[in-house]
Design a protein around this nucleic acid. Structure first.
Length: 403
RNA sequence: GGGUAGGUAGCGAAGUGGUUAAACGCAUCAGACUGUAAAUCUGACGGCUUAUGCCUUCGGAGGUUCGAAUCCUUCCCUACCCA
């Protein structure tokens, strides 16, 4: 254990949306320092989508901070609950996963999460360990502590009720099961996004109803995706995955709207309070081009998940390809023979576009260049050389070799 | 069990016998402008050997019709109300 109460609280409060209740967290930390006992910090993980993005990283970063002060991270892989589907923020019922799938995804989750977490001070638990053993009588006993009204208070449910969108019985049970996890592992603090507030509070209730000291709920803001409006999520296509290639991370970070730069710094990186203040100041200075601050952000993110070297490379390529309209250093090759040298076919056969109609559209709209020259002729054929560089749309490059 | 309203392209939502590959909005893609921003403007947005041509699409299957997303039969699914 290390760190004073103030050091810990300062760190833990950074970037946080809500601590319920804060004075209990103070109490728990004081107790922990006095008894030299680390706190149990719970984080529930939904293994249904094993591609972690920097939205997930927000909470993982916070968990890492707790670890850095010596507290114990307990990752609950919700393999059992994933078979039900978490209704959080969803208007529709999620697809259910098989037991095998959730196990496999859980493993992937852990592998990716350790890009952020300290592997030493961590405990991984699958909630099937206890949930699968519950008898109907156990479940009835747990359920008897809660009322239908209490569960329906949740705004997801309320909204769906109002909008006449189905809610399945098992979804209703989801918060109960998740809350039960807290009881079993004796969590002192549960981390989550603000969308997890209800679930996490049920955990608090659960512990209290069973005579345990209730957990503190610490909620992190949700990070908007690259589109700047929706919450970051892979299915919305606005996520920056932490396992994506460095150039992708860099490029995607550059595409976020300016007003999110600070938030990304605050929630997505490990910058200190002082550094954050500097960034804030730079951004408010009218002579600063926000692009330059954004470049730092993009650099920082690549550095965080890869290395400084990769970050430099990504930055160089970004400048070359997009600022100077040059070529990336790796271009996929496509080899074709001279009897099939129609541009439109090459675009389709190399899977650069989805269909022939799409290829035609792209050409007609001026989105295709060959060796830097715009081609507007749909029936264009490559000839005269053995090698061509085709650019289709904004991001797709193709090196065509004719044999 | 009874009643009512529904199921249309990635999503939302028009259309209720023909000029409908299906209005409109969102999302997406491309172009212009740029900082691969954002905003804005323009265009595209089922597929095909580009054709004022063909094929596939309006929950599934069958039927009526010269012609169906639209009418009929049947099946499946959802919500709401009553019990």
């Amino acid at each position: 254990m290390r760190g004073t109460l103030n050091e810990q609280m300062d760190t833990f409060k950074r970037g946080v949306a809500e601590i319920i209740p804060e004075d209990e967290l103070v109490y728990k930390i004081e107790k922990s320092i006095k008894t030299k006992q680390p706190l149990n910090i719970k984080l529930g993980c939904d293994p249904s989508k094993p591609d972690l993005h920097i939205g997930h990283a927000v909470v993982l970063n916070k968990l890492r901070e707790f670890q850095d002060f010596g507290h114990k991270a307990i990752l609950i892989i919700g393999d059992y609950t994933a078979m039900i589907g978490d209704p959080s923020g969803k208007k529709k019922t999620r697809p259910q996963l098989s037991f095998e799938e959730t196990r496999e995804y859980g493993k992937t989750y852990f592998e990716q999460a350790t890009k952020i977490l300290d592997t030493k001070n961590i405990e991984i638990r699958y909630n099937s360990e206890w949930l699968s053993k519950l008898t109907l009588a156990d479940l009835l006993n747990i359920q008897s502590k809660f009322t239908v009204q209490r569960i329906l208070e949740r705004d997801d449910f309320r909204n769906r009720l109002q909008e006449e969108i189905e809610i399945s019985m098992q979804e209703l049970l989801y918060p109960i099961m998740q809350g039960y996890d807290s009881l079993v592992i004796n969590s002192d603090v549960e981390l989550g996004g603000t969308d997890q507030k209800f679930n996490n509070l049920i955990g608090r209730d659960m512990q209290r109803k069973f005579g345990k000291e209730p957990q503190v709920v610490l909620l992190m803001p949700l990070l908007e995706g690259t589109d700047g409006s929706e919450k970051m999520s892979k299915s919305l296509g606005n996520a920056i995955g932490i396992c994506e290639p460095p150039k992708e991370i860099y490029g995607k970070a550059m595409s976020i709207p300016d007003n999110l730069i600070y938030k990304y710094f605050e929630l997505g990186t490990r910058k200190s309070k002082k550094e954050l203040d500097e960034i804030k100041q730079q951004l408010s200075n009218p002579t600063t081009n926000p692009r330059d601050v954004k470049k730092k952000l993009a650099f920082e993110l690549v550095k965080l998940y890869y290395s400084e070297e990769e970050a430099k490379k990504s930055e160089e390529e970004f400048e070359r390809v997009f600022s100077k309209k040059g070529l990336p250093d790796e271009i996929p090759e496509f080899i074709t023979n001279s009897s099939n040298n129609k541009l439109i076919d090459i675009l389709v056969n190399s899977k650069s576009v989805e269909s022939k109609s799409a290829a035609r559209r792209l050409i007609e709209q001026g989105g295709v260049t060959i060796d830097g020259e715009k081609i507007a002729d749909v029936s264009y054929q490559l000839s005269g050389k053995k090698e061509f560089i085709i650019k289709a749309g904004k991001k797709k490059f193709l090196k065509v070799k004719i044999i």
